[in-house]
């Protein structure tokens, strides 16, 4: 089933068109990496899909026009992890992760057994259960990031849109997170994550969408999207491409000096 379908979606920031007529469909079982240089429109694309920025075009979530969903219904189908790790108050980690259950709870209902299971599972998956009683604001940057990911997981939505989820994580936790995204995909969910680390994107995503200047310039499996020509044209870099332990390896090497060519 198609979990997210964008049709001719454009997004505007301060009147400037930052996403330009993008069409994209994401189905169950996909782990999509949204890649592109700074300012390409990755974050705006994710935010437009959620109706957080002024946009034109249509967004379908779980086969239904997103504008016909109430915010709460939409939240049961899509979870979103913003790029900035904003935590306004020193709330305990456990309570913060529990916020992810908001779309599933009655207005005055407490946390039910299903909510507790989801919260515990999310905290265990992100290895933050040992901090459960600590104020989330006192954690390190990477720990905070993991707590916020756990919050999004606790929402248990079939589709997860994550903006730079690997930022600030150490290599072990980056890999744990990408493995988790793959695991979610194999459970029949879908993940769309904007990524700057092309190595992670190449190795762990089932599909890559390359964006440049608000438009999709390539869409497909990692080894076809991340070809030499695309890396040169979009990122302006040369890269080492290879294979190791059954997966693709990509390491950007140097910038291409356009003056000397």
């Amino acid at each position: 089933m198609t979990l997210l379908k964008l049709d001719d979606l454009s997004a505007f920031l301060g009147g400037r068109r930052v996403v330009d007529q993008v069409s994209l469909a994401v189905g169950e079982g996909e782990c999509v990496g949204l890649i592109g240089p700074n300012g390409a429109g990755k974050s705006s694309l994710l935010r437009a899909a959620l109706g957080l920025v002024a946009a034109a075009g249509t967004v379908e979530i779980a086969g239904r026009d997103a504008s016909s969903w109430s915010p709460r219904q939409r939240a049961q189908h899509v979870a979103y992890l913003p790029q900035d790790h904003e935590i306004a108050w020193p709330v305990s980690v456990e309570r913060l992760v529990a916020l992810g259950r908001a779309p599933h709870r009655g207005r005055f209902a407490g946390l039910g057994p299903r909510d507790r299971t989801a919260i515990e599972a999310a905290m265990r998956r992100m290895e933050v259960d040992q901090f459960r009683t600590q104020p989330a604001t006192r954690l390190s940057g990477g720990e905070k990031a993991r707590v916020l990911i756990a919050r999004a997981l606790a929402q248990e939505a079939p589709l997860l849109l994550a903006d730079e989820p690997t930022g600030g994580l150490d290599p072990a936790h980056q890999i744990t997170l990408m493995r988790l995204f793959r695991a979610l995909a194999s459970e029949g969910k879908a993940v769309v994550a904007s990524l700057h680390d092309l190595g992670l994107a190449a190795r762990w995503c089932t599909r890559l969408v390359l964006i440049d200047k608000g438009r999709i310039v390539a869409d497909g499996p990692p080894d076809t999207v991340l070809n030499e020509e695309a890396l040169r044209a979009v990122y302006g870099v040369t890269a080492f491409r290879g294979e190791a332990e059954g997966g693709m390896v990509l390491q950007p090497l140097d910038i291409i000096d356009t003056d000397r060519q």
Binding site: L50, R72, A75, Q76, V78, A79, D84, I87, A88, A102
Partner: peptide, 20 residues
């Protein structure tokens, strides 16, 4: 009360958790 709890994570996150 509840909407303000989710706003702890910022307006975007709160909206994505179903807060109008």
């Amino acid at each position: 009360g509840r909407p303000l709890d989710t706003l702890t994570l910022g307006a975007d996150a709160a909206q994505s958790m179903g807060i109008g």
